[in-house]
Design a protein around this nucleic acid. Structure first.
Length: 272
DNA sequence: GATAATGTTGGTCG
DNA sequence: ACGACCAACATTAT
């Protein structure tokens, strides 16, 4: 669930919460496999005393630049950060105690998320594709990517090696907005369709960030940001999880199909 | 109460 | 190179 807009929201809220320039006083690992490397004991020993110099996002990764190392965190499906509180939550996997006394807790119900403490972030991030909200991501670059492959559009957009940060929600929304079917072959898109798709991708991601992310459902398992606030972008979704309801553009019933083993929501009238 | 489905990614196997 | 399938895991919906 945390896709680019959700991760971006977390980064911004961490900066606003003044985590920058604090140092890490203590680290505790409650679930070892949430840590990809190094070992829990090495991790705790190495990270203790390091200062948080920068907090950034690359694709769906959170990138913490520390004084000696870089901490990379991928939230996968259910990872989340919470500042404050004291009791250990049942889903809490790792905890950092900061120099001002505050606690940064990492919860991950399904345990898919991963932390990694590395010397150089590049070693992990090199395989990631272009940032879709960067100036380098133009219609021209998208068109070149589309023509370079011949595969279904949806798996292409979900592939982090090409464009970094899109997930199931924002891909369905972007495809609906651009009026293209998820099974269309990348190589078959016209220049005009590529332009619409480029606009749509940037639009849904920008809106998602403005709305501080998408929080589906009412449960705790769903996305909420560092502050505990839910996002509001779920109210803006046009097709995702809206199967059986009317397409907001043409009134046709939205259907759900499977594409690349992922639930996929489309309007068959709008997306041929 | 069993079974299916769930936002992500990485691996294997054709 | 690409897609189908599975695995990691816990919880909710059917």
């Amino acid at each position: 669930m945390p896709e680019l807009p959700e991760v971006e929201t977390i980064v911004r809220e961490m900066r606003e919460a003044s985590l920058l320039n604090l140092s890490i006083k203590k680290a505790e690992v409650f679930w070892e496999r949430s840590l990809k490397r190094p070992s829990p004991s090495d991790f705790c020993r190495q990270i203790t005393g390091q200062k948080i110099l920068k907090i950034d996002r690359r694709g769906k990764f959170l990138v913490f630049t520390l004084s000696e190392h870089t901490l990379l965190v991928h939230l996968r499906m259910t990872g989340k950060f919470i500042i404050g509180g004291d009791e250990i939550h049942p889903h809490e996997r790792i905890r950092l105690t900061l120099s001002d006394g505050r606690i940064l807790r990492y919860e991950d119900q399904r345990k898919f998320g991963k932390w990694e403490l590395v010397d150089k972030a590049e070693s992990v991030l090199t395989d990631l594709g272009i940032e879709p909200l960067s100036a380098e991501f133009t219609v021209g670059t998208l068109l070149a990517f589309l023509k370079a492959h011949s595969r279904a559009l949806k798996p292409f957009l979900l592939d982090q090696k090409t464009i970094a940060g899109l997930g199931n929600i924002y891909v369905d929304e972007a495809l609906w907005m651009a009026k293209v079917h998820p099974l269309r072959l990348t190589s078959s898109l016209t220049k005009e369709e590529a332009k619409l798709l480029h606009q749509a991708i940037r639009h849904v991601l920008t809106k998602g960030i403005e709305n501080t992310g998408t929080s589906l459902g009412a449960q705790r398992a769903n996305y909420f940001s560092v502050s505990g606030r839910r996002g509001s972008n779920q109210d803006e979704l046009k097709v995702f999880r809206r199967d059986g309801l009317e397409c907001p553009r043409c009134g046709e019933t939205i259907i759900k199909i499977t594409v690349a083993q992922r639930g996929t929501h489309i309007c068959l009238f709008c997306q041929k």
